[in-house]
Computed example of a mutant assay.
Amino acid sequence: MGTVAVVNPGGTIEVDVEDGEIPSVRMLSTHYSPAAGDLVEIMRTSGGWVCLGRISTGIPSGAVVDMRAGVVSVPVASGAANNIGSADISFPAVRGDSFYGVATINSGSLQLVAGPPGITSVTSTSATVYVRRTASGNNTNVHWAVFGVKE
């Protein structure tokens, strides 16, 4: 483990370690854009030193830290179009600072309504799913997911 001292233009970095500096450490992945001061994990191989990636010192803002998902049957009165049905869902607590939900259905006669889209009142343990009937029919299954996000 070490700290990035210099980012070289050829795709290598120089890393400060406890007993000195290691020059020309190759990057294992192109997905990581190193910056001076990053704490990184390095490993010595038969071909030289490689950087495995940055070591996180905390959860970055905007990261999804937890998720719950499921399927709920939403009752919608049969008959005329434009009837709206809803179902409350509950789940084990989701970790995070803010909570967001998504929902989807597989039906030509129903559509999700109210909320972003079709799921509202999202908390760490519950939410409400809404469906509007666009033609005659019965209940429908709604697939949902709730995400906890680090602020």
Rank of each mutant, 00 (worst) to 15 (best):
M1D: 08
T3S: 10
V4M: 14
V4Q: 13
A5T: 07
A5F: 10
A5P: 01
V7T: 11
V7E: 06
N8E: 15
T12L: 13
T12W: 14
I13H: 08
I13N: 06
E14V: 13
V15Y: 00
V15M: 01
V17M: 05
E18G: 08
G20I: 00
G20H: 04
E21F: 02
I22P: 02
S24F: 13
S24V: 10
R26W: 09
R26C: 07
L28N: 11
L28P: 14
L28G: 11
S29L: 12
S29Q: 11
T30M: 15
T30Y: 15
S33P: 13
P34N: 11
P34L: 12
A35M: 13
D38C: 04
L39A: 15
L39N: 14
E41H: 12
E41N: 14
I42Y: 06
I42H: 10
I42C: 07
I42D: 08
R44N: 09
R44A: 13
T45K: 00
S46M: 13
S46N: 08
G47Y: 12
G48R: 06
W49R: 03
V50G: 04
C51D: 06
G53H: 12
I55V: 10
T57R: 09
P60A: 11
S61E: 15
G62W: 05
G62D: 02
G62C: 05
V65T: 08
R68W: 07
R68S: 07
A69W: 04
A69R: 09
G70I: 02
V71H: 02
V76K: 09
S78Y: 08
G79L: 02
A81P: 02
N82F: 10
N83L: 05
N83I: 00
N83W: 04
I84W: 04
G85R: 01
G85W: 03
A87E: 04
D88E: 13
D88F: 07
D88L: 13
S90T: 15
V94M: 06
R95E: 09
D97F: 06
D97C: 05
S98C: 05
S98P: 00
S98F: 09
F99A: 01
G101S: 01
G101E: 00
V102R: 07
A103W: 00
A103P: 12
N106K: 06
S107L: 11
S107Y: 04
G108P: 09
S109K: 07
A114T: 14
P116K: 01
P116M: 09
G118H: 01
G118W: 02
I119A: 04
V122A: 07
T123R: 03
S124C: 04
T125A: 07
T125V: 14
T125I: 13
T125N: 05
S126Q: 14
S126Y: 09
S126K: 14
S126G: 11
A127M: 04
Y130Q: 11
R132M: 03
G137M: 03
N138C: 05
N139Y: 03
T140F: 07
T140R: 11
A145Y: 00
V146M: 00
F147C: 00
G148Q: 01
V149L: 00
K150W: 05
E151P: 07
E151R: 11
E151H: 09
